[in-house]
Design a protein around this nucleic acid. Structure first.
Length: 768
DNA sequence: ATGGAGACCTTTTTT
DNA sequence: AGGTCTCCAT
């Protein structure tokens, strides 16, 4: 068996698979068979007699984990494969944390706050502290807190960190540290963790409890980490601690595909591996099996423009393939039309399966225009991303009841459903209960459970409503052990009154259906529950498993919509962000919106580091394609409600001409704009307007005939300006402190006063 | 308490 | 532009 496995691998792959003792870092170029190496390695380890429960395999998505399990299963044809601990960082560590919860001041019933819960809590805290929510924007605060936790900084560390404090002060938000402290203590008293806490506390657990560390070091003697380039500091530390005893660690990654820097992923983790493990073996997988030569060459040419990277040469023996097409379009709807036409053509002329086609974009909002067009042309599609199933209101409502049944202290869940379905507990009553709890230093649940004892300042009937509510929740709690997730979930859906409330309103049909679907998922979970893992020789139970509701919640908390399974088997074009496409491959790939300020994003253009990340993102996008790659850009696009002119992305200039096909013109029938024309521009040949404009116009209209583009310094009160849409006017004043956010108040000659965001307005200083 | 009108904000990527 | 939130009128 082992022999068979190895014969299917090339030399470097074989090395990556067989070096099972000691630290190994595999630098896996795009399409070089990374997943294959990981799965074969696990199979090989099992072949060599390593106990499956001693293997820990960490991935970033549940989907990747599941795929890995399936593939190992197929390879080994053995139930043992299921006993391998495979999962995402968050899911595996959450499980550990629930087991060890008491050590870190939580209980086994702990629940997980998703991003919405975290934001809701922060919103409440900002309100309670009487801060201006316009200054203390929850997104900003959460990002700060998340970044701190990801680098293992506690609220106390943060409070003492002068750098962080100075930064916050500079942003006009000096109280972030206090919010952080409060946020953490609220999470703690709710017996809840946010996403980042899972990593933070996991590290703390291993750091502070040597015997626990020892236990898991021996449990996980062989560690594999996928997508190592995307690990953050917290993940790095945890892995390091776990691997410290046996040094049997294998990390697989590609520095060129690091695209989560914004979330704290630290590319240095991969660059420093050799420093941490002196005896480490480095294996490079450089042969690409996925894509045509044209695609590989294009990807290489693009990534060459980045400075910091591990030297490697990705090459392929595949055929040269079709040249890469770049399509220019007049607008986003034109772009969508070009893409759809092309898909329609390959589907009908070449009988391409729609499942093999993907449309990728930088931001989720870009899906709209594409979606409209796909509908119009009756092309089936599926969009990944956007609001996930588990983020929907009705689903969150039911799950809130479930969470509350498991963990009475889950304050976000409590607030969410205490008056839904309506039971006459108004907002004022809730506020009074909370105030009452805060005054007496107990939790909200405590006071509403005993409203008379704690003397909540509400009338008696309301107190009784509180009691009734807690009684109902407690009746659910009582069934936690006796019923499986599906039985109890179903009971809760009905007994909570949610199903009745949804059924009462015919416009809520969709929501009712979604509840059905959630129950189906629970059923699936309960029926196909994984088995407990135990050591066959000693009979020792390694991992006990019951399909209870709290176990279901544990899974669900960390699911994303990418993990939702297909409902029908109809072939569909896939639409997703490039981030979501990481790790996937398609025969035909369309990368849309290749425009400056969109891809690369305007937020990244200022910083070299972030620009390089955008380039890696482009690299990832290109290398998703196996056979045919099409790139598109639009010359105008609606953004913030108004039309913007868009320059083609600088990334297009980085593609080697030898890989490109002549550029199709913008969609037929309509006129189009000329593109800017640097000498090196390979697809600027055909233009539909005169090619004059030797200046570097920011957009495609001939600005030079009117005047020149204004820069911020030009714009003083009294300055005459011209606006493409609004005509001539005079600047009244300039507003805003942040240079990125300056607004001009302009008195237009015919239209009166308007406020324009300078970032987007493209004002022109007229000649003379 | 419910719903509608209007203000306001958004747009990076996500476990 | 579109979605969400707020406030006001019912």
């Amino acid at each position: 068996m082992a022999k068979d496995i190895l014969s299917e691998l090339n030399e470097s792959q074989r090395q990556a698979v067989c070096e099972i003792d000691g630290p190994v870092m595999v630098i896996a170029g795009a399409g070089s068979g990374k997943t294959r190496v990981l799965t074969y390695r696990i199979a090989y380890m099992l072949e060599r007699g390593i106990a499956p429960w001693n293997i820990l395999s960490l991935t970033f998505t549940n989907k990747a984990a599941r795929e890995m399990t399936d593939r190992v299963l197929k390879l080994i044809g053995d139930k043992r494969a299921k006993a391998v601990q495979m999962g995402t960082f968050h899911s595996v560590f959450l499980r550990v944390l629930r087991t060890e919860a008491e050590k870190i001041g939580f209980t086994h019933a702990l629940t997980v706050y998703d991003t919405d819960d975290s934001k809701a809590l922060l919103r409440n805290i900002v309100k309670e502290m009487n801060l201006d929510p316009k200054i203390y924007v929850v997104n900003f605060i959460l990002n700060r807190i998340s970044a701190a936790k990801s680098s293992l900084m506690s609220a106390e560390d943060y409070a003492q960190n002068s750098e962080a404090r100075a930064y916050d002060k500079e942003c006009g938000k000096p109280l972030i540290s206090d919010i952080f402290t409060r946020y953490n203590s609220r999470l703690h008293s709710a017996n809840a963790m946010d996403f980042d806490d899972i990593l933070y506390y996991m590290n703390a657990l291993l750091r502070d409890y040597p015997e626990t560390l020892f236990k898991y070091q021996n449990r996980f003697q062989y560690i594999l980490v996928d997508e190592y380039q995307d690990t953050n500091f917290a993940q790095y530390r945890i892995i390091k601690r776990l691997a410290d005893a046996h040094h049997n660690i294998c990390v697989v990654g590609d520095d060129a595909q690091s695209i989560y820097g914004f979330r704290g992923a630290d590319i240095n983790n991969i660059l420093n591996f050799k420093r941490d493990y002196k005896e480490a073996k480095i294996v490079k997988l450089e042969q690409n099996y996925r894509s045509t030569q044209n695609i590989v060459n294009a990807a290489n040419a693009v990534i060459k423009n980045n400075n910091k990277q591990i030297p490697k040469t990705v090459w392929t023996e595949n055929e040269e393939g079709t040249p890469i097409t770049v399509l220019s379009s007049a607008s986003e709807s034109d772009e969508a039309m070009l893409v759809c036409d092309s898909i329609f053509e390959i589907e009908h002329n070449y009988h391409v399966d729609l499942n093999d086609i993907a449309i990728l974009y930088r931001t989720n909002m870009q899906s709209r225009a594409l979606e409209e067009c796909l509908i119009k042309k009756h092309i089936p599609y599926r969009i990944y991303g956007g609001t996930s199933f588990y983020a929907r209101k009705e689903i969150k409502d039911i799950l809130a009841y479930c969470r509350l049944a498991v963990n009475h202290y889950d304050e976000e869940a409590l607030r969410r459903v205490i008056n839904y379905p309506l039971r006459g507990i108004g907002e004022t009553s809730v506020e009074r209960a909370i105030a009452c709890a805060n005054e007496q230093g107990v939790r909200m649940w405590d006071v509403i459970e005993n409203p008379h004892f704690y003397e909540i300042p509400v009338n008696n009937p309301t107190r009784e409503k509180f009691v009734d509510f807690t009684a109902k929740i407690k009746s659910f709690t009582a069934m936690l052990q006796s019923k499986d997730a599906y039985e109890l979930g179903k009971h809760i859906a009905f007994a909570s009154g949610i199903v009745a409330a949804l059924k009462a309103d015919p416009s809520e049909k969709d929501r009712a259906d979604n509840v059905e679907e959630l129950l189906d998922a629970m059923k699936d979970f309960s029926e196909n529950a994984e088995e407990s893992t135990f050591n066959e020789e000693t009979g020792e139970v390694i991992e006990h498993f019951e399909p209870t509701l709290d176990r279901f919640l544990e899974n669900v908390a960390l699911l994303t919509d990418a993990d939702e399974k297909e409902k029908d088997d109809q072939s569909k074009v896939r639409l997703m962000t490039i981030h979501a496409a990481k790790g996937l491959e398609f025969d035909y790939v369309y990368i849309t919106g290749l425009e400056e300020n969109l891809f690369p994003s305007s937020l990244s253009i200022g910083s070299k580091r972030e620009l390089e990340e955008e380039r890696r993102l482009f690299y990832v996008a290109i290398t998703r394609a196996k056979k045919v790659l099409t790139l598109t850009h639009a010359q105008t696009r609606y953004r913030y409600g108004s039309m913007q002119f868009c320059e083609p992305s600088r990334f297009l200039d980085e593609l080697p001409m030898s890989c490109l096909k002549t550029i199709a013109k913008a969609s037929a029938g309509r006129g189009t704009f000329a593109r800017r024309e640097p000498k090196s521009n390979p697809w600027g040949e055909r233009t539909f307007q005169k090619k004059s404009a030797p200046t570097k116009p920011q957009n495609d209209l001939d600005i030079s005939a009117i005047g020149r583009l204004a820069n911020n310094n030009d714009l003083r009160p009294g300055q005459r300006i011209y606006h493409l849409k609004f005509g001539y006017g005079t600047v009244a004043r300039i507003d805003g402190s942040n240079p990125n956010d300056l607004k001009a108040i302009v008195a237009f000659d015919t239209l009166g006063e308007k406020v324009l965001l300078l970032k987007f307005a493209k004002l022109i200083i007229p000649k003379n």
